[in-house]
Design a protein around this nucleic acid. Structure first.
Lengths: 186, 186
DNA sequence: CCAAACATACCAACCGGTCTGTTTGTTATT
DNA sequence: AATAACAAACAGACCGGTTGGTATGTTTGG
């Protein structure tokens, strides 16, 4: 793999685990055996440019990942189920909840840096759009589909937060169990 | 107000706005005109002890705040509605979403410091417990009440995250609108 | 008189970022 | 084929500023 992708990949993982400010450049550099010169060659604007590159990469990765899940599963219930199953599995295997979340970066940077906030906003919008389209094909009206997509995104993101504080996957499991009920209520 | 509370209050506000790592001790000290000596007199273990004190204070403040809202409002629908209305109002007036959230602190510290993680966990549990009790008095079974309490907490927390990235209160408003539907679905 | 409640100067460690090289790969010229 | 020329891709020493934290003093209330 080339140096640039290497930087993005390890930085992404570290940012997801510890947040943005908690991870120093030297930590990233050491983790992927790259020197400072190389970093500033590929990212002249330093750490924040690297973060935005990470968010862009994450956006693409998450989007394609969810899209394939939504293609493989016929109903939105099954799709959401297998999506959350994957999150739960990842969390249980490596202990870190890095799946479709970047809340650690959102919450500390969204209020500080506009470019970062925009990158995060784009990511959430993409996720919601995938939900939205699936819901529309299942007969939901445009309005209720976008509302449901928002509710689903919010509850999953919130559940991940709870999982992190509780060191347990139960919140995600509960939400996964309840989402079918939500869909019924419309 | 005494020095200790002054420190806690201003630190809480700053932490909520920018997160933990982004706020330096000197920034806090300057903001409330307190010197380093005073800080380390009241919090010998420094910044992290201050953060935990903030979380404890926040816990109490949020808990009593929500409790009074839940006493004033007969149905849980009305209670949630006025709770979110308050959040929306705060966000629209001062631009910062500091209400019942501390996700900025959770996400960057929960994976790093156990004491902080515990304090955050306690806070979420308290909130859920208030929801839970109200739901039980409205006839929900113990099991579905705790599930609903979790779902509500998660979706509100997630919605706040979305609000922050979108710089809009719409996500919270949408969630507020949909929660009655959730309750019906049980 | 004594301890609690500060104030202030100071510190090593670390931060992100810049600097000046050196290596390496590509292309043009003879 | 050899070489000159050039730029991209690094390497690593270095820098000023800031960080959280400490040590030592001074004030103040009981």
């Amino acid at each position: 793999m080339d140096t640039k992708s290497q930087l993005i990949n390890t930085a992404t993982a570290l940012f997801q685990q510890k947040g943005y400010k908690s991870v120093g450049l030297n930590e990233i550099l050491k983790a992927c055996n790259v020197t400072k010169g190389a970093l500033y060659h590929h990212f002249p604007n330093g750490k924040e440019e690297l973060l935005i590159a990470c968010l862009h990469d994450l956006n693409e990765a998450i989007t394609t990942d969810i899209k394939t899940i939504f293609k493989e599963n016929l109903s939105i219930r099954e799709a959401i189920r297998s999506m959350i199953d994957k999150l739960v599995h990842d969390f249980e295997s490596d202990g870190t909840l890095s799946g479709y979340t970047f809340s650690s970066m959102v919450s500390e940077m969204a209020t500080v840096s506009e470019p970062v906030r925009n990158a995060c906003s784009a990511l959430y919008e993409n996720i919601q759009h995938i939900f939205y389209e699936k819901l529309v094909t299942e007969g939901f009206s445009s309005e209720s589909a976008s509302e449901m997509a928002l509710l689903m995104t919010a509850s999953i993101e919130g559940a991940m937060m709870l999982c992190r504080t509780q060191k347990s996957t139960d919140p995600l499991k509960t939400v996964a169990k309840l989402i079918p009920n939500l869909l019924k209520s419309f």
